[in-house]
Amino acid sequence: MINLRDKGAEIWERANRPQRVLMAISFIAMAAALPFLGGTFLNTPIADYQSVLVYPIAMFVLMAIGLNIVIGKSGLLDLGYVAFFAIGAYTMGLLGTRTSLNTWEILPIGIAMAMFSGIILGVPALKLRGDYLAIITLGFGEIIRIVALNLEVLGRSGGIIGIPTPPPIFGIEYAFDSHRIYYWTLLIIILFAIWMVRRLSVRRAGRAWESIRQDEDAAELMGVPTFKYKVWAFVLGASVGGAAGVFYASKTLFIAPDNFTLQISILILACVVFGGMGNIWGVIAGAVILGYLPDRIRFLSDARLLVFGLVLVIMMNLRPDGLLPRKKREKALPNKEKP
């Protein structure tokens, strides 16, 4: 099967520095120009195109990058990723409505809260392996939602309303309906996350995750402190989710437990696997497609999720490694017995 990812990597590796800078800049410019393409075939028929770009698309991309650290890089199955998104959003909701802190000040607090809960959940859960980790994270996601649903201070099913928008920064106003501004801000956050993941992947942490994913026992025997790096992966993933949550709450002005269901966790997981686990470009492609598709095919109205499910089945059967799979040499051997 054609491996677009390897093709892309080949072109990238053959290019010299100015060519690479040029490629990166044109790629970023293309992404930044997306809000102006509303009138073209890209347009979403019912939802406002520019707001679709912010949520779900850009938000999904950010979360998928975060989840990819956990699943794609270190091979830990996390089914409750929405919990960190919710923690970030509720931190913003609570502090934004009850204190005079603004979005930019709450952002680090929200990230810290998400990281902290990542440690609380990760330290016991990461001692377990595989499927048990899956169910515990899934349970954690549900617990956060149920707690939000039942605690008076979190607004119960009514959620929190009147969350302030971000204050102007460098003279740029964040009006609640100027979706473009939010999209560009998110783009910057996404670029920062990509940069972080790419730097980490080629350093000690990235190699440790890689070895854990391929064979945890072998890694442990070679002296990799596997537990420490697993918690690190988990906490870094959580921090990205938390950042997405803070920004989401500040954008939508209103959050309720219904925004943080298990379906979101599953959708983000689907983005990661659909696009190509472990490969950041694949994951981004997956998140863009899966975030965009349900709104693009809204003309199917009622049947759109049905079609979405069909697409998932067909795609996975045709390309089980995802749209843009990771490099061949990074693939784990499917079975221990095989050479």
């Binding site: 699943i71 199955l77 599953i266 997981l269 689907a270 696997v273 659909f274 686990m277 999720l305 049905l306 979405f308 499910g309 069909l310 697409v311 998932l312 089945v313 996975m316 059967n317 089980p320 490694d321």
Partner: peptide
């Protein structure tokens, strides 16, 4: 195990 998991999620959505 992840690819079959996603395709099963697709089937359950359908």
């Amino acid at each position: 195990i992840l690819a079959p998991l996603i395709s099963a999620i697709g089937v359950s959505m359908v």
